[in-house]
C-alpha cells in the first residue's frame, strides 16, 4: 500500500490542480459557451436556442463601438509600445553610466495597478485643472486638450496611459534580447568598420525575432483584456465612446442583467485571444518538447 502510494504520489499531488483547471477553466468555458447559445437574461437558462445572442451582439451599436475601439486601441498601443520600447532599449544599450537608475524609472509604472494609472492620468488630462488649464495659465489662452471628455478622442487617452504603463516593460524585454546577441559577431562587425546603426538594423534586430513575437503576444493579450484602465480613466465614456469588449461584457453581466449577452461577448473575446495566442503557444510547446 505504501509503495503504491509512493509510486503514485506525483499524480496525487498534481491531481487537485488538474481537476481545478479542468473544472474552473475548461468546464467554465464550456458553461459560458453553452449559456451564450440560450436566451438567458437575469438568470441562466439552459435550453439551446442557437446563435440568437451572437446575432443580437453583432447588431448592437454599442458592441460595434467596442470592437472598433479594440481595433484602434490595440493597434496603436502595440505599435507605439513596441517602437518606443525598442528605441529606449537601443539607447540604454550604449553603455549608459546611469543605466540602472534609468531602467528603474522607465519600468516602475508596471508595478502600479491600472486603477492607479487611470486615476493619475484622469487628473492630469482633465481639462478644467490639468494640462489644458496649466498650458493656458502659461499664456496660451487658446490651447485646447480635452481628449479625455471628447467622444472622438477619448480612446487615444487610453492609448496614452496604457503606453505609459507598459512601454518600460517592452524596453526591458528588448534590452534582455539585445544583451543576448552574440558579442563576437558585433565585435567583428565593429572591427570591419560597419556603422552602429547598420549593426543594429542588419545584425542585432533580425536576430531578435522571437522577442518581437513575445512582446507582441504579451501586448496583444494586455490589449484584449484591458478593463480596469478604462474603468478608472473614462468609465467607458463619454457615453459609450471608450467601451471595449471587456467593459461591455462587465456591463451586461453585472449592471444590465443580460447573462446571454455577457456570455456571448466573453466568447468572442476568447476567440480573439486564442487566434493570437494558440499558434504561439503551440510552437512554444513543440520547440520545448523537441529541445
Amino acid at each position: 500500500m505504501s509503495e503504491w502510494l509512493e509510486n503514485h504520489l506525483p499524480k496525487i499531488v498534481l491531481a487537485p490542480s488538474f481537476i481545478g483547471v479542468l473544472v474552473f477553466v475548461y468546464g467554465f468555458i464550456a458553461w459560458t459557451a453553452w449559456v451564450s447559445l440560450t436566451r438567458s437574461k437575469l438568470l441562466p437558462r439552459y435550453e439551446i436556442k442557437g446563435f440568437v445572442q451572437y446575432e443580437k451582439l453583432f447588431d448592437s451599436p454599442r458592441w460595434d463601438t467596442a470592437m472598433n475601439n479594440l481595433f484602434i486601441f490595440g493597434t496603436l498601443f502595440i505599435v507605439i509600445a513596441m517602437v518606443l520600447g525598442l528605441l529606449l532599449a537601443i539607447m540604454l544599450d550604449q553603455k549608459i553610466r546611469t543605466e540602472g537608475v534609468i531602467r528603474t524609472i522607465y519600468l516602475y509604472p508596471m508595478a502600479l495597478s491600472m486603477i492607479v494609472t487611470g486615476t493619475a492620468w484622469k487628473w492630469i488630462l482633465n481639462p478644467g485643472l490639468g494640462i489644458e488649464a496649466t498650458v493656458r495659465g502659461w499664456g496660451y489662452e487658446n490651447f485646447s486638450f480635452d481628449w479625455v471628455v471628447n467622444p472622438d478622442y477619448a480612446i487615444y487617452t487610453i492609448v496614452l496611459a496604457a503606453v505609459w504603463q507598459s512601454s518600460g516593460f517592452v524596453m526591458a524585454l528588448f534590452l534582455a534580447g539585445l544583451r543576448s546577441v552574440d558579442g563576437e559577431i558585433i565585435k567583428a562587425a565593429q572591427v570591419d568598420g560597419i556603422p552602429t546603426w547598420r549593426i543594429y538594423s542588419a545584425i542585432i534586430i533580425p536576430s531578435m525575432a522571437p522577442i518581437f513575437l513575445s512582446a507582441f503576444i504579451v501586448l496583444a493579450h494586455l490589449a484584449i483584456k484591458i478593463f480596469d484602465l478604462v474603468i478608472a480613466l473614462t468609465g467607458g465614456g463619454p457615453g459609450y465612446a471608450t467601451d471595449l469588449p471587456a467593459t461591455y461584457m462587465y456591463a451586461m453581466a453585472f449592471s444590465r442583467g443580460d447573462i446571454g449577452q455577457a456570455a456571448s461577448s466573453a466568447m468572442i473575446m476568447m476567440l480573439v485571444v486564442f487566434t493570437i495566442v494558440v499558434p504561439y503557444l503551440y510552437s512554444e510547446l513543440r520547440s520545448k518538447n523537441d529541445g
Binding site: 506525483p10 498534481l14 490542480s17 488538474f18 483547471v21 479542468l22 474552473f24 477553466v25 475548461y26 468546464g27 467554465f28 468555458i29 458553461w31 459560458t32 449559456v35 441562466p44 493579450h221 484584449i224 483584456k225 469588449p245 471587456a246 461584457m249 462587465y250 453581466a253 447573462i259 455577457a262 456570455a263 461577448s265 466573453a266 466568447m267 473575446m269 476568447m270 485571444v273 486564442f274 495566442v277 503557444l281 510547446l285 518538447n289
Partner: peptide
C-alpha cells in the same frame, strides 16, 4: 500525461477572465 496536464494549465493562463466570471459567480 504530465506534459499534457502542464500544457492544459499553461493554456489557462491565457484565457480572458471574462469567460469564467459568470460561472464563477454562481459557483
Amino acid at each position: 500525461g504530465a506534459n499534457l496536464i502542464f500544457s492544459l494549465m499553461l493554456f489557462g493562463c491565457f484565457i480572458p477572465f471574462q469567460v469564467v466570471l459568470l460561472p464563477m459567480a454562481r459557483m
